[in-house]
């Protein structure tokens, strides 16, 4: 890289990083504390009994329990095993990274001067509608077509006893370091350790730290790639620019980019806002598709869902989000 390219990369990289890092911190602190302090079963209590209504409500739960896409998959895995309807779980999983206050705030801030209110509302609405639609479809499918065999079996089998008393008693067991190590003895007990309250604070901060690093790594990679394209250093930058003007190719290109970059929904708007050669609709596609399907999520989803279902979901999301974003862009241009 020439000295000129180095200085260009550095300026673009640092400016996007400085802009996005505080929002990642906010998101990971909240998800870290939710991870540690939120008792299991709290989310189910928010859901109505009627199936369709419960799916719709699941699409809004992110507003109360804001988590990004990295954190949501383990949560859903746990909740589904504990009896949350799969359709509700998948709806929450797809909607929560988008329909949550941190993502709304970061999108609004990132798009200042570029129709921030319209972009924020469109993103929330589209994310919600897509997630609920997927939930409604899943509710009509056999679970065998959706869930991995292992998860399906665990739903059908009564929980095994591992010799622990699961009755909210005091017990001491192996704590190696960090959070208590249950890897060798899965159980479903209400812990009541003797640990002091500040243990939990340490655990919450550790969870937040881990989330921040997980997200920060992908963010740093994403910002690096964006900075290379933004300043024209990347070899394909000129080619990408030629796609920007194409109504169909532009959303497809940005959704592919979102899939590869695997950005966190709390910070991806700062990347999208710098793609100034792309249309508003293409950016909307980027911001809606990315939190629902990317390389990192592909691996996470496989811990819960069947590969064939994930492939079908990815294709459907790509087509539907691409079409709606293009149509929405067209409507807005017409209205102007």
């Amino acid at each position: 890289m020439s000295p000129d390219s180095q200085q260009d990369f550095a300026l673009a990289f640092l400016s996007i990083l400085f802009e996005g890092a505080p929002f990642i911190l906010l998101g990971t602190l909240i998800s870290g504390f939710i991870d540690i302090y939120l008792p299991a079963g709290t989310m189910e209590r928010f859901l109505p009994k009627r199936r369709n209504l419960a799916i719709v409500m699941s699409g809004l739960l992110g507003a109360v329990f804001p988590v990004c896409e990295c954190a949501v998959v383990p949560v859903i895995r746990r909740l589904v095993k504990k009896g949350l309807p799969v359709s509700c779980g998948i709806t929450y999983m797809l909607a929560a990274p988008i329909v949550n206050p941190i993502t709304a705030l970061s999108t609004w801030k990132a798009f200042q001067g570029q129709g921030a209110a319209m972009m924020t509302c469109s993103r929330m609405l589209l994310g919600f509608l897509i997630a609920v639609s997927v939930g409604l479809v899943v509710s009509r499918l056999s679970l065998a077509n959706v869930l991995r065999e292992k998860i399906l079996r665990s739903l059908n089998e009564p929980e095994k006893s591992d010799g622990h008393h699961h009755c909210g008693h005091n017990h001491h067991h192996d704590h190696q370091d960090g959070c208590c190590d249950h890897k060798t003895h899965d159980h479903d007990c209400d812990h009541n350790h003797d640990a002091a309250g500040n243990d939990r604070l340490v655990a919450a901060f550790r969870s937040a730290l881990k989330d921040f690093v997980d997200v920060g790594v992908y963010f740093a990679i994403g910002v690096s790639i964006t900075a290379l394209f933004n300043t024209g250093i990347a070899p394909g930058a000129a080619w990408l620019d030629t796609l920007a003007g194409n109504q169909v190719a532009a959303p497809a290109a940005l959704m592919t980019l979102a899939f590869i970059l695997s950005l966190c929904s709390t910070s991806d708007a700062f990347i999208a806002a710098t793609l100034d050669k792309f249309s508003w609709g293409a950016k909307l596609a980027f911001l809606t598709f990315g939190p629902m399907m990317d390389v990192k999520l592909l691996f996470l989803y496989q811990t819960v869902m069947r590969k064939r279902f994930i492939a079908a979901l990815a294709l459907a999301l790509f087509l539907v989000i691409g079409c709606i974003s293009t149509f929405w862009q067209h409507l807005i241009v017409q209205a102007k």
Binding site: D35, R78, K81, C180, D186, H187, D188, D199, R200, A203
Partner: peptide
Amino acid sequence: RADCLHDHGGGD
């Protein structure tokens, strides 16, 4: 050492 103090489902 730090403890999360909440329950986890089987297999988690």
